[in-house]
C-alpha cells in the first residue's frame, strides 16, 4: 500500500508516493535522489545512514517517512550553504578525515549536532558523541582532529544561528 507524504528535506518540501513500510533511508536515496546518505547495515548498528530530524541525529534506516511529515530533515547535501561548505566539511577535507568517505556523511551530521549543543567539546566528548558511528578506514584520529579544528574555527567567528 502506498501513501502520499510531504517531506521537508534540506529546506525543500517534496511530495512523495511511497509504500508505508519504506524507510526514510530508502526514500531519501531512491525517491528523492539524495544518495549522500549511505547505508551500512540497515539495522541501526553502524551510524552510516544518520540524518538530522529537527536537528537531532536519527538513523534513517530505522525511521519511517510517515513519522517525518512536518519535521525538518537535514542530509549531508544540506550542510553547505550554497557553495560555502560547513566548517566541519572544510576541516574534514583539509585534514584527511574522509578516506573512503562512506561513513563521512553520517559522522559530519552527528558532529554538527554535537557542536550545536556543545561548541567547545573536549576530545572525550567528541568520542562519546561519535561512538555510534563506525569508521573502518581512519582509526578515528583525523576525524576527531577535524571536529576539534572545526569547533575552533566556528568559535572564532560565531555565525548567526550557530
Amino acid at each position: 500500500m502506498k501513501t502520499r507524504l510531504s517531506l521537508t528535506v534540506n529546506g525543500e518540501t517534496h511530495e512523495v508516493l511511497v509504500p508505508v513500510h519504506k524507510t526514510l533511508l530508502e526514500v531519501l536515496r531512491e525517491d528523492l535522489g539524495l544518495t549522500g546518505t549511505k547505508h551500512g547495515c540497515e539495522l541501526g548498528e553502524c551510524g552510516t545512514c544518520t540524518v538530522l530530524v529537527e536537528g537531532e541525529p536519527v538513523l534513517s534506516c530505522l525511521a519511517l517517512p510517515v513519522e517525518m511529515e512536518g519535521r525538518a530533515i537535514t542530509t549531508v547535501e544540506g550542510m553547505a550553504e550554497g557553495s560555502t561548505l560547513h566548517p566541519l566539511q572544510q576541516a574534514f577535507a583539509e585534514l584527511g578525515a574522509a578516506q573512503c568517505g562512506y561513513c563521512t556523511p553520517g559522522i559530519l551530521l552527528t558532529a554538527q549536532r554535537l557542536l550545536e549543543d556543545n561548541p567547545v567539546p573536549t576530545r572525550t566528548e567528541i568520542k562519546e558523541a561519535l561512538a555510534g558511528n563506525l569508521c573502518r578506514c581512519t582509526g578515528y584520529t583525523k576525524i576527531l582532529d577535524a571536529v576539534e579544528l572545526a569547533a575552533l574555527r566556528m568559535g572564532r567567528q560565531p555565525a548567526a544561528g550557530r
Binding site: 549522500g36 561548505l85 568517505g101 556523511p105
Partner: peptide, 13 residues
C-alpha cells in the same frame, strides 16, 4: 587535501 576530499565531504561521491 586529497583531490576527491570535496566530493566526499559533500556526499557527491
Amino acid at each position: 587535501p586529497k583531490i576527491d576530499a570535496w566530493a566526499k565531504v559533500t556526499g557527491e561521491t
